[in-house]
């Protein structure tokens, strides 16, 4: 699974990154988590509110930081 966090470095973006890494660890998924900080790259995903979460190229969360449990549910749905 390919997980991307879109964000230009705001505190909420960092919170999403931490929660995502925790959720991946807790579910034991085989996933790569990367961060997209370049605004041109972020815009390619068509989001207007950061932070956003992209799973396998699809935007699943935008403009908010879900809890670790919500993220886990999301990952399992996208498996």
């Amino acid at each position: 699974m390919d997980i991307k966090i879109l964000g230009t470095g705001c505190p909420r973006c960092k919170a999403l990154e931490r929660a995502t890494i925790d959720a991946v660890k807790e579910t034991g998924l085989n996933a790569t988590v990367s961060k997209v900080e370049d605004i041109m790259e972020i815009m390619k995903f068509g989001v207007m509110t950061t932070p956003a979460l992209v799973i396998n190229g699809q935007v699943v969360v935008k403009g908010k930081v879900p809890s670790v449990n919500e993220l886990k549910d999301l990952f399992i749905q996208k498996l």
């Binding site: 230009t8 909420r12 815009m43 989001v47 207007m48 509110t49 403009g63």
Partner: peptide
């Protein structure tokens, strides 16, 4: 509309684009 000044840039770009 929900707005946070931290999202001002993507929002600006999204609107203008």
């Amino acid at each position: 509309t929900p707005f946070c000044s931290c999202s001002a840039i993507p929002l600006f770009l999204g609107f203008v684009e």
